[in-house]
């Protein structure tokens, strides 16, 4: 009995030691620098090629779960647009563009030309099929005219996390002009509700859903995101997730 206890306790000590080693490796900046380099290979080898699969409408899952940060109902700027059913929502698109513009919700609705039933893949491992309708990002970019030095499109959200850190995300121009990358206004035939990122969210079906910024407040074209917030190109990226989320 005593021997069994000794074996059990030394085994659990060994296992705890194993855990300390993996945690230490994961937190070592030098080791992580090497491990994180695989993202460049992912981006190079997979990139943004081809078209995300279109599903028949019969496969739509009407129980679309919500995930990520909570709905920003307590954020004053969002509460203002939410109050009158998004009627006064406006989306400024600026930065490194020739013709900065502000789009009203009505203007965005008039530009809507894409409605595709695609899969929304959460990084956690589950997915859900929905029909997203909205404005192709390529259309917006054609209207504002990116300057030659513009490389990334930044999406700033109305949302903040519990610590008050603003939510934002970014994609490069190549990903932005992909014909399936859209500013979504409708989900399954209805205007996107507050919990699913309404009135306007990004939808990029060739990458994981954490790239699809909800509650878009402002769009800005930049040459680099190094100086913006955590410098990794997005809220989740600042928290360790890959900027390239096609895998």
């Amino acid at each position: 009995m005593r021997r069994g206890l000794f074996v059990a306790s030394s085994l659990s000590a060994a296992l705890a030691g194993c855990g300390r080693v993996t945690n230490a490796l994961n937190e070592n900046a030098g080791v992580k620098g090497v491990i994180d380099s695989a993202e460049r290979l992912d981006h190079f080898a997979i990139g943004t090629r081809g078209m995300a699969k279109i599903y028949p409408d019969s496969e739509i899952d009407y129980q679309f779960p919500t995930n990520g940060l909570p709905t920003p109902t307590s954020e004053a700027p969002y509460a203002r647009v939410l109050k009158d059913g998004f009627a006064n929502y406006e989306l400024p698109v600026g930065g490194l563009v020739d013709h900065p513009q502000t789009f009203s919700l009505r203007a965005l609705q008039a530009l809507t030309s894409i409605a595709e039933t695609t899969r929304h893949d959460c990084v956690e491992g589950w997915s859900v099929i929905g029909k997203w309708a909205g404005v192709p990002m390529a259309r917006i970019l054609a209207m504002v005219g990116p300057k030659p030095n513009a490389r990334y499109v930044m999406f700033y959200s109305f949302d903040r996390d519990e610590q008050g850190t603003p939510f934002y995300g970014s994609i490069d121009l190549h990903q932005a002009v992909h014909p399936q990358t859209q500013l979504a206004l409708k989900l399954n035939g209805k205007p996107i509700d507050a919990d699913h990122g309404g009135p306007v969210r990004l939808r990029i079906p060739t990458q994981l859903a954490y790239k699809s910024t909800k509650w878009v407040q402002r769009i800005e074209l930049v040459s680099s995101f190094k100086g913006i917030y955590g410098g990794q190109g997005g809220y989740w990226e600042d928290n360790g997730y890959e900027w390239y989320a096609g895998i």
Partner: peptide, 12 residues
């Protein structure tokens, strides 16, 4: 791997 819950790290 790692022992602590870290989805971003585990993916990398």
């Amino acid at each position: 791997f790692p022992a602590e819950q870290d989805l971003a790290g585990a993916r990398r």
